[in-house]
Design a protein around this nucleic acid. Sequence first.
DNA 1: GGCCAGGACACCA
DNA 2: TGGTGTCATGGC
Length: 221
Amino acid sequence: MNPRLPDIYERLLNCYGPQHWWPGDSPFEVIIGAILTQSAAWGNVEKAIGNLKSAQVLSVDALRRLPAETLARLVYPAGYYNAKARKINAFVEWLWEGYDGDLDRLFELDVAALRRELLSVYGVGEETADSIILYAGYKPVFVIDAYTRRIVSRLGLAPRVSTYSAYQDLFMQGLEPDVAMFNEYHALLVRHGKDVCRKSPRCQPCCLSAVCPFPEGLRSG
DNA sequence: GGCCAGGACACCA
DNA sequence: TGGTGTCATGGC
């Protein structure tokens, strides 16, 4: 149990306030957004989701029937449009075949089984799987992304091995399992990463300076 | 004009 | 197991 993790959370929350993640009208929309946002700016993802809504195809049934080229054209603004169309198609086909297209049935699984299942789908890696479990399934797993790794490293909390699961264990073992808090914590780390860490490759004074063991400007990366 | 964004996968040594 | 290339638009 790392006592610094709750402290960091409180400081980020006081600094930025609630982030209201994940933007989306339904769990299914959250899942499609999780695939589309892979290595993409969220603004571009919103355009792609807007296209899917306008075309009235943001459902398992409609997406299954959609020709690959049409789906690729609709998600074009999110980048990697051919690859992402293939991933979305793989997910809806998998959901249809295994769960009759019913997300409620999928989310009846416990977290470990759900994660294994999701990771078996083409295009769903660890971060995407955990985003789906947390933000669409409302189950307590901590999502690790590039910002989280960077911030954790700069704070001197990086695990010995730099794997996804090692970073995830750091948070899962350092915090009480709480869906709302995990949701907010991850969103706040992304917010902090965007607002502070991205603008300067080296650390500047920020809302986490008080809990950072390193002198200002020493850390980079 | 270059860099990066709320990654995943294939291929190679 | 780890490193590298590929997928690609859009904002700054």
